[in-house]
Design a protein around this nucleic acid. Structure first.
Length: 425
RNA sequence: GGAGAGGUGGCAGAGUGGUCGAAUGCGCUCGACUUGAAAUCGAGUGUACCGAAAGGUACCGUGGGUUCGAAUCCCACCCUCUCCGCCA
């Protein structure tokens, strides 16, 4: 959520930054804000009068005045008058506040000054490539779903029987490889100081709103309609809400977490895209990294987060490139985002495998997560960052293709062998 | 699912209509005493909004209601705990 005070004080600046992301008009919001504050002043003055009358009644009765006497009756009448005025103002103010809130909830975060300007993903900026020398030179590499089914470790067809299309069942070494990847990544991140958490995989509406998935992107999540619960679309959601409505001490920061969770996405509107394989499923596993940091630290924390995500790909010797997302491609909550794209030989291109974002205080404000600096009064919102480290299914796809051997087997990356107990699939 | 109990400040816990943002204890901060520490004593210690400030307003699970006045009474909802049933 954006800071209403900031919008009020620098409307043209905020407007200009929002314009980089889409078409937004702040004027209605500002008008509502002016009305609301005017009403608030009036209401609070009336309230003060009402409180004063109430106090007088109490005092006079205590001092022995006749509760049915004319003095008291006059006060009560005055009180009733104030109450009538209040009952007119209160609902109006409440309504205005609700309108302001609901508009604020739909405004995306402001891009950073570093973020390249652009309308679509075509204008994302490539920052660097890594591991060109690991790109397989053969031209007969099978797509991962074909080699996976050949090896009997991926099954898509039976998964439609169990669930629907866009689900996979991992079998034998496939299931073991998935588990090994999770273990490997968590071990790496915990060694780097991230605290492992395994949160609930069902989250409530407030949690989805806190991290920015709601209200705008409801159709992207699976909902349990009988309960106020949704299937988590990413660990970012439960981990953000791990500290929702808390006031931390500045000495608590930074907090670094990593979490393995399945992720559930409806992929509404992507019919016909990536219909085969592990790239776009309704359910996939992911190891996520997440940081709550002091505002002064979030810029450097993003670079460190990115390095940690890259480290996973490097350890697996998977070729990748780093993109910085342009303003038009930035996610709703993000100030600044790097995507990691891994080389997929069958597609002959790079595909997203990680997204590392600095959300500034946007989620901190939505989730009401603040910190207090000792010796200073007042609170500030924490900055939050999240990054995949990595999406497990897409990592498996990359391995099945980049490590494919001419004889139809797949080499197991060296760092995974201890976790898997074998060198070849 | 059935029966019951309960939701108050960082924590514990009082408060059943009036001056209660809220006793008391613990914790925490600062100060005194002490060579230092402990103990003791003193002062302080929630958040947000409006306002240049003085100050004002709101918040006792959430939302409504009664009343001049609600933490306290009424209604609805949510959540937590205990016992029983079911269950990994």
């Amino acid at each position: 959520m954006l800071d209403l005070k900031q919008i009020r004080e620098n409307p043209q600046q905020v407007q200009a930054k929002l314009q980089l992301r889409g078409d937004y008009d702040l004027e209605p919001l500002l008008a509502l804000d002016r009305q609301q504050r005017e009403l608030e002043t009036m209401r609070s003055q009336l309230q003060a009068r009402s409180n004063d009358i109430g106090k007088q009644v109490g005092q006079q009765i205590k001092q022995g005045a006749d509760p049915k006497g004319s003095d008291i009756a006059a006060l009560k009448a005055a009180g009733n008058e104030v109450k009538a005025e209040l009952s007119d103002l209160e609902p109006k103010e409440r309504e205005l506040k609700a309108q302001i809130e609901s508009i604020l909830l739909t405004l995306p975060n402001l891009p950073s000054d570093h973020t390249p300007q652009g309308a679509t993903e075509d204008e994302n900026v490539e920052v660097r490539r890594w591991g060109d020398e690991h790109i397989p030179q053969r031209s007969d590499i099978l797509p991962h779903w074909e080699i996976g089914e050949k090896l009997g470790i991926l099954n898509f067809e039976r998964s439609t029987r169990i669930a629907q299309s866009r689900f996979v069942t991992l079998i034998g070494a496939g299931a073991a490889l998935e588990r090994a990847l999770i273990q490997f990544m968590l071990a790496r991140h915990t060694a780097a100081g991230y605290t492992e958490v395994m949160p609930p995989f069902l989250v409530n509406t407030a949690s989805l709103q806190a991290s920015g998935q709601l209200p705008k992107f409801a159709e992207e999540s699976f909902q349990c309609k009988n309960d106020d619960l949704w299937l988590t679309p990413t660990a970012e959601v439960p981990v953000t809400s791990l500290h929702r409505d808390e006031i931390l001490a500045d000495s608590d920061l930074p907090l670094h977490y990593c979490a393995f969770t399945p992720c559930f996405r409806r992929e509404a509107g992507s019919y016909g895209r990536d219909t085969r394989g592990l790239i776009r499923l309704h359910q996939f596993n992911k190891v996520e990294m997440y940081k709550f940091v002091h505002p002064d630290q979030s810029a450097t924390a993003l670079e460190a987060l990115l390095a940690d995500a890259e480290g996973v790909l490097q350890a697996l010797n998977l070729p990748y490139r780093v993109l910085e997302l342009c303003t038009g491609d930035l996610g709703f909550s993000a100030v600044r985002t790097y995507d990691l794209e891994v080389w997929l030989p069958s597609a002959d291109k790079y595909r997203e495998i990680s997204s590392c974002s600095n959300c500034g205080d946007f989620q901190g404000r939505r989730a009401n997560i603040r910190f207090k600096t000792s010796g200073q009064k007042g609170t500030q919102f924490v900055h939050t960052l999240n990054g995949s480290g990595l999406a497990i299914g897409r990592t498996m796809a990359a391995i099945l293709e980049n490590y494919q051997q001419p004889n139809g087997t797949v080499q197991v990356p060296e760092v995974l062998q201890p976790y898997l107990g074998r060198a070849v699939l």
